[in-house]
Amino acid sequence: MGWLSESLNSSIGKKFIMALTGISLILFLIVHLAGNLTLFIGEEAFNLYVESLDKIKPFIRVIEVVLAAIFIFHIVNGIKLYFENRGARPEKYAVNGSRKNSTLFSRTMAQTGSIIFIFLVIHLSTFWKAFNLDTHAADASYYNIVLEWFQIEWYAVLYVICMIILGFHLNHGFQSAFQTFGWNHNKYASLIKKIGTGYAVIMAVGFASIPIYFLLGGM
């Protein structure tokens, strides 16, 4: 399989990995958000949602492992690209004119990605840990766990900021993936860009609305 690792390590191969894993994560986020929005329906609905996931635990575990692998691929590959790309220009320009030729979103994928990674660590060590590892009383409500966390001000604000940054990342990532797959068509390219921006806004607003809702609700 020498050809495979060679292909995946080529510049286009690495782009391809970023795009493929990125698109997978984009799809995951849709499911994730859809589930989270049950919080707005109420405690019962959310608890039911989480419990129903609990019933298919082995399956969820497999999904989680796959997701983790995708994340790791996306992150490791991204870090590798970042350093290689920096190395491609050892002497920097004294005047940076990139504002004039590209968007902020596209130039800051490594930075927004890093922040999202930090967020991910926090997210896993709080919610995921609370839902999956911590022992709860038999009548504990998942809904209340969320409520408690989001009524901590700094935590909620951090969440909101991170979700905005996630939106930045997705805004570029979505259409970028299509470009990488070679789907840049006169007729559909602008539509894809719009869908990407729409998607990014929905994700950012959707995820951020939850902490805002609980924070304001708790006040």
């Binding site: 510049s11 782009k15 790309n85 491609a88 990139s98 590209s102 994928m109 990488t180």
Partner: peptide
């Protein structure tokens, strides 16, 4: 040859 990878910023097209 030591060129970097494309991250689809499209600065190339603009310039």
């Amino acid at each position: 040859l030591g060129f970097g990878s494309c991250t689809n910023t499209y600065a190339c097209e603009a310039e």
